[in-house]
Computed example of a mutant assay.
Amino acid sequence: MLRINRENLKSSHQMIWLLIDFAMLGLLIVNLAFIIWDSIYDFVAVQNLLKDYLPAVQSAYHPIHERFIFYDMIFVSIFLSEFVIRWGYSIKAKIYDRWYFYPFIHWYDLLGCIPIGSFRFLRVLRIISIAYRLQQYKIIDFTNTRIYTFFAFYFDAFMEELSDRIVIKVLTGVQHEIQQGSPLFDRIQNDILYPRKAMLADWLSDRVANAAEQGYMPNRGALRAYLEDRVDHALKQNLELSRLKYLPVVGPTIQDTLENAVGDIVANVIHQILEDLASSSNHAFIEDIVNALLPDPSSTEEEDSDQEALISLINEIIDAIKGQVRVKHWRKNLP
Protein backbone atom coordinates (compact mmCIF):
# COMPACT_ATOMS: atom_id res chain seq x y z
CA MET A 1 0.00 0.00 0.00
CA LEU A 2 1.29 3.48 -0.96
CA ARG A 3 1.75 5.79 2.02
CA ILE A 4 3.04 9.35 2.38
CA ASN A 5 5.76 9.84 4.97
CA ARG A 6 4.66 13.10 6.58
CA GLU A 7 7.68 13.31 8.87
CA ASN A 8 10.10 13.30 5.95
CA LEU A 9 7.88 15.79 4.17
CA LYS A 10 7.95 18.20 7.12
CA SER A 11 11.67 17.80 7.73
CA SER A 12 12.56 18.27 4.07
CA HIS A 13 14.14 21.57 3.06
CA GLN A 14 12.25 21.28 -0.25
CA MET A 15 8.80 21.14 1.32
CA ILE A 16 7.27 23.87 -0.87
CA TRP A 17 8.56 22.28 -4.06
CA LEU A 18 7.44 18.85 -2.92
CA LEU A 19 3.94 20.17 -2.27
CA ILE A 20 4.00 21.66 -5.77
CA ASP A 21 5.08 18.22 -7.03
CA PHE A 22 2.03 16.66 -5.38
CA ALA A 23 -0.24 19.28 -6.96
CA MET A 24 1.35 18.82 -10.39
CA LEU A 25 1.14 15.06 -10.04
CA GLY A 26 -2.60 15.28 -9.42
CA LEU A 27 -3.09 17.68 -12.36
CA LEU A 28 -1.06 15.45 -14.67
CA ILE A 29 -3.11 12.38 -13.75
CA VAL A 30 -6.36 14.30 -14.33
CA ASN A 31 -5.05 15.72 -17.61
CA LEU A 32 -3.91 12.35 -18.94
CA ALA A 33 -7.22 10.76 -17.96
CA PHE A 34 -8.98 13.61 -19.80
CA ILE A 35 -6.80 13.05 -22.90
CA ILE A 36 -7.40 9.29 -22.90
CA TRP A 37 -11.15 9.72 -22.45
CA ASP A 38 -11.36 12.30 -25.23
CA SER A 39 -9.39 10.01 -27.55
CA ILE A 40 -11.88 7.23 -26.85
CA TYR A 41 -14.83 9.58 -27.29
CA ASP A 42 -13.48 10.65 -30.67
CA PHE A 43 -14.66 7.34 -32.16
CA VAL A 44 -18.09 7.71 -33.80
CA ALA A 45 -19.13 4.32 -32.46
CA VAL A 46 -18.53 5.47 -28.90
CA GLN A 47 -20.51 8.68 -29.50
CA ASN A 48 -23.43 6.71 -30.94
CA LEU A 49 -23.28 4.25 -28.02
CA LEU A 50 -23.45 7.08 -25.50
CA LYS A 51 -26.22 8.78 -27.47
CA ASP A 52 -28.30 5.58 -27.31
CA TYR A 53 -27.68 4.59 -23.67
CA LEU A 54 -26.42 7.74 -21.89
CA PRO A 55 -27.76 10.69 -23.87
CA ALA A 56 -27.30 13.09 -20.95
CA VAL A 57 -23.58 12.27 -20.71
CA GLN A 58 -23.16 12.56 -24.46
CA SER A 59 -24.93 15.88 -24.71
CA ALA A 60 -23.00 17.29 -21.74
CA TYR A 61 -19.56 16.18 -22.91
CA HIS A 62 -19.89 16.80 -26.66
CA PRO A 63 -19.38 20.59 -26.36
CA ILE A 64 -16.27 19.92 -24.24
CA HIS A 65 -15.00 17.54 -26.91
CA GLU A 66 -15.42 20.18 -29.60
CA ARG A 67 -13.39 22.64 -27.50
CA PHE A 68 -10.86 20.05 -26.28
CA ILE A 69 -7.85 22.15 -27.31
CA PHE A 70 -9.10 25.08 -25.19
CA TYR A 71 -9.43 22.94 -22.05
CA ASP A 72 -6.12 21.21 -22.69
CA MET A 73 -4.44 24.60 -23.05
CA ILE A 74 -5.61 25.46 -19.52
CA PHE A 75 -3.55 22.53 -18.24
CA VAL A 76 -0.68 23.47 -20.57
CA SER A 77 -0.62 27.04 -19.23
CA ILE A 78 -0.35 25.71 -15.67
CA PHE A 79 2.42 23.31 -16.64
CA LEU A 80 4.35 26.03 -18.51
CA SER A 81 3.99 28.45 -15.60
CA GLU A 82 5.37 25.86 -13.19
CA PHE A 83 8.19 25.09 -15.67
CA VAL A 84 9.19 28.78 -15.92
CA ILE A 85 9.07 29.19 -12.12
CA ARG A 86 11.33 26.18 -11.59
CA TRP A 87 13.67 27.41 -14.32
CA GLY A 88 13.93 30.79 -12.60
CA TYR A 89 14.59 29.11 -9.23
CA SER A 90 17.33 26.93 -10.76
CA ILE A 91 19.02 30.08 -12.13
CA LYS A 92 18.78 31.87 -8.78
CA ALA A 93 19.98 28.87 -6.77
CA LYS A 94 22.67 28.08 -9.39
CA ILE A 95 21.63 24.44 -9.50
CA TYR A 96 23.21 24.00 -12.94
CA ASP A 97 26.45 25.41 -14.33
CA ARG A 98 24.68 27.39 -17.05
CA TRP A 99 21.31 29.16 -16.94
CA TYR A 100 20.14 27.51 -20.17
CA PHE A 101 20.84 23.94 -19.00
CA TYR A 102 17.45 23.52 -17.29
CA PRO A 103 15.22 23.22 -20.43
CA PHE A 104 17.66 20.74 -21.98
CA ILE A 105 17.77 18.54 -18.88
CA HIS A 106 13.96 18.74 -18.45
CA TRP A 107 13.18 18.46 -22.17
CA TYR A 108 10.25 16.10 -21.56
CA ASP A 109 8.47 18.78 -19.48
CA LEU A 110 8.78 21.26 -22.34
CA LEU A 111 7.84 18.90 -25.19
CA GLY A 112 4.90 17.53 -23.20
CA CYS A 113 3.33 20.98 -23.26
CA ILE A 114 3.01 20.91 -27.07
CA PRO A 115 -0.76 20.36 -27.70
CA ILE A 116 -0.31 17.59 -30.29
CA GLY A 117 -1.37 14.02 -29.61
CA SER A 118 2.07 12.40 -29.94
CA PHE A 119 3.67 14.98 -27.64
CA ARG A 120 0.92 15.03 -25.02
CA PHE A 121 1.79 11.56 -23.81
CA LEU A 122 5.30 12.75 -22.93
CA ARG A 123 3.59 14.09 -19.83
CA VAL A 124 3.80 10.51 -18.55
CA LEU A 125 7.57 11.05 -18.28
CA ARG A 126 6.88 14.04 -16.08
CA ILE A 127 4.78 11.87 -13.77
CA ILE A 128 7.66 9.39 -13.60
CA SER A 129 10.18 12.16 -12.84
CA ILE A 130 8.01 13.58 -10.05
CA ALA A 131 7.42 10.12 -8.59
CA TYR A 132 11.15 9.40 -8.73
CA ARG A 133 11.92 12.69 -6.96
CA LEU A 134 9.42 11.89 -4.20
CA GLN A 135 10.94 8.43 -3.87
CA GLN A 136 14.43 9.95 -3.54
CA TYR A 137 13.30 12.20 -0.71
CA LYS A 138 11.59 9.16 0.90
CA ILE A 139 8.25 10.96 0.90
CA ILE A 140 6.64 8.05 -0.93
CA ASP A 141 7.89 4.49 -1.00
CA PHE A 142 6.79 2.74 -4.18
CA THR A 143 8.87 -0.36 -3.44
CA ASN A 144 6.20 -1.65 -1.05
CA THR A 145 3.39 -1.52 -3.59
CA ARG A 146 2.15 -4.63 -5.39
CA ILE A 147 2.47 -2.98 -8.78
CA TYR A 148 6.12 -2.15 -8.18
CA THR A 149 6.99 -5.63 -6.88
CA PHE A 150 5.12 -7.22 -9.81
CA PHE A 151 6.92 -5.22 -12.48
CA ALA A 152 10.26 -5.33 -10.64
CA PHE A 153 10.12 -9.13 -10.46
CA TYR A 154 9.41 -9.60 -14.17
CA PHE A 155 11.89 -6.88 -15.13
CA ASP A 156 14.61 -8.69 -13.15
CA ALA A 157 13.57 -11.99 -14.76
CA PHE A 158 13.73 -10.43 -18.23
CA MET A 159 17.13 -8.85 -17.57
CA GLU A 160 18.50 -12.13 -16.17
CA GLU A 161 17.29 -14.09 -19.20
CA LEU A 162 18.72 -11.46 -21.56
CA SER A 163 22.07 -11.20 -19.77
CA ASP A 164 22.37 -15.01 -19.53
CA ARG A 165 21.89 -15.37 -23.29
CA ILE A 166 24.43 -12.63 -23.96
CA VAL A 167 27.01 -14.13 -21.60
CA ILE A 168 26.55 -17.64 -23.04
CA LYS A 169 26.86 -16.22 -26.57
CA VAL A 170 30.06 -14.40 -25.64
CA LEU A 171 31.57 -17.45 -23.91
CA THR A 172 30.69 -19.64 -26.88
CA GLY A 173 32.45 -17.15 -29.13
CA VAL A 174 35.51 -17.24 -26.86
CA GLN A 175 35.56 -21.04 -27.05
CA HIS A 176 35.36 -20.86 -30.85
CA GLU A 177 38.27 -18.42 -30.99
CA ILE A 178 40.31 -20.62 -28.66
CA GLN A 179 39.73 -23.68 -30.81
CA GLN A 180 40.71 -21.70 -33.93
CA GLY A 181 44.06 -20.82 -32.36
CA SER A 182 43.52 -17.51 -30.65
CA PRO A 183 46.69 -15.73 -29.38
CA LEU A 184 44.94 -15.30 -26.03
CA PHE A 185 47.18 -17.76 -24.19
CA ASP A 186 50.38 -16.16 -25.41
CA ARG A 187 49.08 -12.74 -24.37
CA ILE A 188 48.08 -14.01 -20.92
CA GLN A 189 51.42 -15.72 -20.35
CA ASN A 190 53.77 -13.21 -21.97
CA ASP A 191 52.02 -9.87 -21.37
CA ILE A 192 50.16 -10.46 -18.09
CA LEU A 193 51.63 -13.30 -16.02
CA TYR A 194 55.33 -13.22 -16.93
CA PRO A 195 55.89 -9.51 -16.10
CA ARG A 196 54.28 -10.19 -12.70
CA LYS A 197 56.25 -13.36 -11.97
CA ALA A 198 57.97 -11.91 -8.89
CA MET A 199 54.65 -10.73 -7.48
CA LEU A 200 53.11 -14.19 -8.05
CA ALA A 201 56.07 -15.85 -6.33
CA ASP A 202 55.72 -13.56 -3.30
CA TRP A 203 51.98 -14.12 -3.12
CA LEU A 204 52.26 -17.92 -3.41
CA SER A 205 55.06 -17.96 -0.85
CA ASP A 206 52.92 -16.11 1.68
CA ARG A 207 49.88 -18.29 0.98
CA VAL A 208 51.87 -21.54 1.36
CA ALA A 209 53.53 -20.29 4.54
CA ASN A 210 50.18 -19.30 6.09
CA ALA A 211 48.55 -22.59 5.09
CA ALA A 212 51.44 -24.65 6.51
CA GLU A 213 51.60 -22.62 9.71
CA GLN A 214 47.87 -22.68 10.40
CA GLY A 215 47.27 -26.26 9.23
CA TYR A 216 50.39 -28.10 10.40
CA MET A 217 51.84 -26.38 13.44
CA PRO A 218 48.80 -26.87 15.74
CA ASN A 219 48.52 -30.54 14.70
CA ARG A 220 52.13 -31.61 14.31
CA GLY A 221 51.99 -33.94 17.31
CA ALA A 222 49.00 -35.81 15.94
CA LEU A 223 50.56 -35.89 12.46
CA ARG A 224 53.84 -37.28 13.81
CA ALA A 225 52.01 -40.01 15.71
CA TYR A 226 49.99 -40.87 12.60
CA LEU A 227 53.12 -41.06 10.38
CA GLU A 228 54.98 -43.25 12.87
CA ASP A 229 51.97 -45.55 13.15
CA ARG A 230 51.63 -45.89 9.35
CA VAL A 231 55.39 -46.48 8.88
CA ASP A 232 55.35 -49.10 11.65
CA HIS A 233 52.40 -50.83 10.01
CA ALA A 234 54.11 -50.78 6.61
CA LEU A 235 57.36 -52.20 7.99
CA LYS A 236 55.52 -55.03 9.71
CA GLN A 237 54.00 -55.96 6.37
CA ASN A 238 57.47 -56.18 4.77
CA LEU A 239 58.56 -59.85 4.49
CA GLU A 240 62.33 -59.19 4.39
CA LEU A 241 62.20 -57.10 7.55
CA SER A 242 59.99 -59.61 9.35
CA ARG A 243 62.66 -62.28 8.91
CA LEU A 244 65.04 -60.35 11.15
CA LYS A 245 63.17 -61.51 14.23
CA TYR A 246 64.36 -65.06 13.54
CA LEU A 247 67.96 -64.06 14.18
CA PRO A 248 69.06 -65.46 17.51
CA VAL A 249 69.28 -63.04 20.45
CA VAL A 250 69.53 -59.72 18.53
CA GLY A 251 66.83 -60.29 15.87
CA PRO A 252 63.81 -58.75 17.66
CA THR A 253 65.95 -55.87 18.94
CA ILE A 254 67.25 -55.02 15.46
CA GLN A 255 63.72 -55.17 14.06
CA ASP A 256 62.31 -52.79 16.72
CA THR A 257 65.25 -50.40 16.40
CA LEU A 258 64.94 -50.29 12.60
CA GLU A 259 61.17 -49.69 12.75
CA ASN A 260 61.61 -46.87 15.26
CA ALA A 261 64.45 -45.33 13.27
CA VAL A 262 62.58 -45.38 9.96
CA GLY A 263 59.44 -43.97 11.56
CA ASP A 264 61.44 -41.22 13.24
CA ILE A 265 63.30 -40.36 10.01
CA VAL A 266 60.07 -40.10 7.98
CA ALA A 267 58.37 -37.99 10.63
CA ASN A 268 61.39 -35.68 10.93
CA VAL A 269 61.65 -35.25 7.15
CA ILE A 270 57.96 -34.36 6.84
CA HIS A 271 58.26 -32.09 9.86
CA GLN A 272 61.27 -30.27 8.38
CA ILE A 273 59.56 -29.84 4.97
CA LEU A 274 56.44 -28.35 6.52
CA GLU A 275 58.47 -26.11 8.82
CA ASP A 276 60.41 -24.82 5.83
CA LEU A 277 57.19 -24.18 3.96
CA ALA A 278 55.78 -22.34 6.97
CA SER A 279 58.79 -20.00 7.11
CA SER A 280 60.06 -17.28 4.82
CA SER A 281 62.74 -19.66 3.51
CA ASN A 282 60.17 -21.24 1.19
CA HIS A 283 60.42 -18.26 -1.18
CA ALA A 284 63.29 -19.72 -3.25
CA PHE A 285 61.43 -23.02 -3.64
CA ILE A 286 58.19 -21.30 -4.71
CA GLU A 287 60.14 -19.04 -7.07
CA ASP A 288 61.65 -22.08 -8.78
CA ILE A 289 58.16 -23.53 -9.28
CA VAL A 290 56.89 -20.25 -10.73
CA ASN A 291 59.91 -20.07 -13.05
CA ALA A 292 59.16 -23.57 -14.26
CA LEU A 293 55.48 -22.73 -14.86
CA LEU A 294 56.25 -19.37 -16.48
CA PRO A 295 59.42 -19.76 -18.51
CA ASP A 296 61.00 -16.87 -20.36
CA PRO A 297 58.93 -16.43 -23.57
CA SER A 298 62.04 -15.37 -25.50
CA SER A 299 63.87 -18.61 -24.78
CA THR A 300 61.17 -21.30 -24.48
CA GLU A 301 58.27 -22.31 -26.71
CA GLU A 302 55.26 -24.29 -25.59
CA GLU A 303 54.84 -27.78 -26.94
CA ASP A 304 51.76 -28.47 -29.05
CA SER A 305 50.56 -31.09 -26.55
CA ASP A 306 50.81 -28.56 -23.71
CA GLN A 307 48.91 -26.03 -25.81
CA GLU A 308 46.13 -28.54 -26.52
CA ALA A 309 45.92 -29.51 -22.86
CA LEU A 310 45.64 -25.84 -21.89
CA ILE A 311 42.93 -25.28 -24.51
CA SER A 312 41.01 -28.29 -23.18
CA LEU A 313 41.33 -27.01 -19.61
CA ILE A 314 40.12 -23.51 -20.53
CA ASN A 315 37.18 -24.95 -22.47
CA GLU A 316 36.13 -27.09 -19.50
CA ILE A 317 36.30 -24.04 -17.23
CA ILE A 318 34.18 -22.02 -19.65
CA ASP A 319 31.66 -24.89 -19.90
CA ALA A 320 31.39 -24.88 -16.11
CA ILE A 321 30.81 -21.11 -16.14
CA LYS A 322 28.15 -21.50 -18.84
CA GLY A 323 26.43 -24.16 -16.77
CA GLN A 324 26.30 -21.82 -13.80
CA VAL A 325 25.03 -18.95 -15.97
CA ARG A 326 22.15 -21.15 -17.18
CA VAL A 327 20.82 -21.39 -13.61
CA LYS A 328 17.60 -19.36 -13.44
CA HIS A 329 17.76 -17.61 -10.08
CA TRP A 330 14.54 -15.69 -10.68
CA ARG A 331 12.55 -18.93 -10.68
CA LYS A 332 13.43 -19.43 -7.01
CA ASN A 333 11.35 -16.34 -6.18
CA LEU A 334 8.24 -17.50 -8.01
CA PRO A 335 5.21 -17.73 -5.69
Results as ranks from 00 to 15, higher is better:
107 W>C: 05
64 I>A: 04
200 L>Y: 11
17 W>C: 02
83 F>G: 04
202 D>I: 01
244 L>E: 07
168 I>E: 04
301 E>L: 09
321 I>C: 08
181 G>T: 06
207 R>G: 06
308 E>T: 14
314 I>Q: 04
149 T>R: 14
277 L>G: 01
92 K>G: 08
26 G>H: 12
172 T>N: 13
62 H>E: 02
215 G>S: 15
116 I>A: 07
36 I>N: 01
177 E>P: 03
147 I>G: 00
202 D>P: 00
57 V>I: 09
152 A>Y: 05
264 D>M: 09
234 A>P: 00
151 F>E: 06
282 N>L: 06
243 R>N: 08
102 Y>I: 04
207 R>C: 07
299 S>I: 08
265 I>G: 06
260 N>V: 07
329 H>M: 10
212 A>R: 04
134 L>H: 06
18 L>N: 07
101 F>C: 03
100 Y>M: 00
30 V>C: 08
165 R>T: 11
211 A>K: 01
257 T>N: 10
160 E>T: 06
165 R>M: 14
209 A>I: 05
296 D>H: 04
1 M>P: 12
322 K>G: 06
200 L>N: 04
155 F>K: 14
315 N>W: 06
21 D>Q: 03
195 P>K: 07
53 Y>R: 00
268 N>V: 13
59 S>H: 09
283 H>R: 15
114 I>P: 01
286 I>T: 10
228 E>G: 02
135 Q>K: 13
162 L>Q: 10
136 Q>C: 08
26 G>I: 14
93 A>P: 00
56 A>Q: 09
92 K>N: 12
41 Y>H: 03
211 A>Y: 13
38 D>P: 05
328 K>Y: 07
104 F>Q: 02
299 S>T: 14
220 R>L: 10
21 D>C: 09
146 R>D: 15
227 L>Q: 01
77 S>P: 08
268 N>M: 14
116 I>Q: 11
139 I>G: 07
73 M>N: 14
219 N>Q: 13
219 N>V: 12
169 K>C: 06
108 Y>L: 10
9 L>C: 03
229 D>I: 03
44 V>W: 11
61 Y>W: 13
244 L>R: 06
157 A>D: 10
18 L>W: 02
80 L>T: 03
283 H>A: 02
277 L>R: 02
83 F>Q: 07
196 R>A: 09
